[in-house]
Design a protein around this nucleic acid. Structure first.
Lengths: 357, 357
DNA sequence: TTGTATGCGTTATCAA
DNA sequence: TTGATAACGCATACAA
């Protein structure tokens, strides 16, 4: 007999207790139901399931028995009301087209689950769309919010800060009493790649950008241009991109179709770089790295594919998530707020696209 | 004056109502707090925020005023207790290395958010690990669970069904009162690619598999082998893979290093196919499609990159999520359970890897 | 229209 | 060890 059929039977008065319990549109048995069936008090049931408390073996067995028959699972919802803690953390993402965010999300889920938190994923096309979502998050009383948005305006950050919940913001310059910024060392990466390009003999340079508002993009460019200037090199040609393959492809076509052909190209992320490589090789008949050196940022899986072999920087999702977990657990434990922005390093990973024999 | 400083001041007795409210470790003001400040009853506050009810304009203003000063946001938690509905849906994923799952997750989040549900993401390495997670989901009283696990054992499905919650399982053969299966037409895709390979003149064939327990993998292979047999072609050589780039690379090396060299290779998904292409081109010096025709499944973004141009099948994440949303909303509305497995089509997308001039 | 009282399913406190 | 009782924050039936 299936569950549904049994439910139907229940309305005809033939069912056992297990079914009567669910008459009123209830899906779950409550501790009261279990108590009634076991012939004990509701508190006894609660104690049986809340670990540390003392219950006699007899009572325990009676309760466990009834619970099993009723498929009882304690609800965490009332606990939230009592403790003002939901054990829910939200992560805000703005589209997962970039494999780096996938990695972040994966690490995030695993680490926070291990820390006993459940993860709410929230999609916000832009930081503007955040306004619609924030009230809902507040309504669910999430313990913390992590923003993985590439672009986060001060206004949106303010709105988040008003919630009086710990907020961790990835690759953003914002920092205040409630918002902690966790970034990787974007500036340093820009400097490092400038050094590498020059060491490899490049004399002219190009940079394909990410979205204008992206802090990571700005910092990578700043480091790159700054170091080039220090080295006395010519400033790079710059073409706007958008962190996507197609953007890199199009930007590279624009940059290399004139008579100015940079000998080395730094892209704000790996997807852009891969798009650029394809544009150069497939559409323009240029060779990488023989004609043009190329580097990206993120070390997405495709960067290490044999056909690509992209020189890039490790975007340490695990490290950044670790920081986020630390901030949240500290805040949850009532500790002091984290005052300073946190920065994880982004080591260079050199592969074929910058190697000339 | 920052929020934190104000709180500190509050303990010194200098603060306004807004801060006193939060003394007891409370993060949020409650409707009672608002009522007190506004000089009205708690029900008045509730009515003001629950839309449909009648409240006089004067009261409304007083309430809204106090609410603003207290930063009041109604909690949804008590509502869950009253209605037995959390508006929470969970999606179970087993690692996001496969870009297809990324797409699924993205579509999922957007669609369910639009439907007024919040999305809980749960990571389960294997279907075995599900056992640890299921109780937690039950504790949060999720309205439905969607499993995007490539492999879902009948045991795990049983455990899910015991929750008496609607469960939607992607690409799985399981179907019962509580579990609805949503798949794409994997068998048909296998048949289609067999036809295409033969039409393109291939005489010998290969297949690189996904994980053994994956229903999608089994069905794609079945369709492929079945149709080849019908066409009187030789059965394909088969090498085990795992849905990953590295697996495809290694499997292709094994398959093509002997003297048996299939003229056409079908891979259980795109990542495998891309790995195989790289192995053939970079390591074995074979040409694709001139020497070997290759096709995959999923149509991940990389499949359409200029350097790859992979013939594949559209794995319609949006379509599958649509079905899931439909099932959940139907079940939530108390409708009849969905009895039959749902299947979405997977149209062929032909690109360079199967085109010979 | 407004306020009072009750219940939702837990945990924690207290008395027995 | 056990059971009765009071919260938690909201919605709702009912009384005023």
């Amino acid at each position: 007999m299936t569950a549904r059929k049994k439910s139907a039977a229940a309305t005809q008065g033939q069912a056992g207790h297990a079914d009567l319990v669910r008459e009123a549109g209830k899906k779950y048995a409550s501790s009261v139901d279990v108590a009634r069936m076991a012939g004990v008090s509701q508190s006894a049931v609660s104690r049986t399931f809340s670990g540390g408390a003392k219950v006699s073996e007899v009572t325990r067995q009676k309760v466990l028995d009834a619970a099993k028959r009723l498929d009882y699972r304690p609800s965490l919802i009332p606990r939230i009301m009592l403790t003002h803690k939901s054990n829910l953390v939200a992560i805000v993402v703005g589209g997962l087209y970039n494999p780096f965010y996938t990695t972040v999300l994966d690490e995030f889920t695993v680490r926070f689950q291990a820390a006993g938190q459940q993860v709410l994923i929230v999609h916000a096309e832009s930081d503007h769309a955040l306004d619609d979502v924030i009230p809902k998050l507040a309504s669910y009383r999430v313990d913390a919010i992590v923003s993985a948005l590439a672009v986060l305006s001060p206004q949106a950050a303010d709105a988040l800060a008003r919630l009086r919940i710990p907020v961790i913001s990835f690759n953003t310059a914002i920092q205040n009493d409630w918002v902690t910024s966790v970034s990787c060392d974007n500036v340093e990466a820009g400097r490092t790649i400038a050094d590498l390009f020059v060491a490899r003999g490049a004399r002219s340079f190009g940079f394909i950008t990410g979205p204008a508002g992206s802090r990571a993009n700005i910092d990578r460019r700043k480091g790159f241009e700054g170091r080039l200037a220090e080295l006395g090199a010519r400033p790079p040609a710059v073409e706007p991109g958008d962190y996507r393959y197609e953007g890199g492809f199009a930007a590279a076509l624009r940059m290399f179709s004139g008579r100015q052909r940079p000998e080395a190209l730094f892209c704000a992320n790996d997807l852009l770089a891969i798009g650029a490589i394809d544009a150069l090789r497939q559409s323009l008949g240029l060779r990488v790295p023989e004609d043009v050196l190329i580097a990206g940022f993120d070390d997405i899986p495709a960067a290490s594919w044999a056909s690509i072999g992209l020189t890039t920087f490790l975007h340490d999702a695990a490290g950044m998530v670790d920081k986020a977990v630390a901030v949240v657990t500290a805040a949850t434990a009532g500790g002091a707020p984290v005052a300073a922005p946190m920065i994880v390093s982004a080591p260079l990973i050199e592969r074929a696209t910058t190697r000339r024999r």
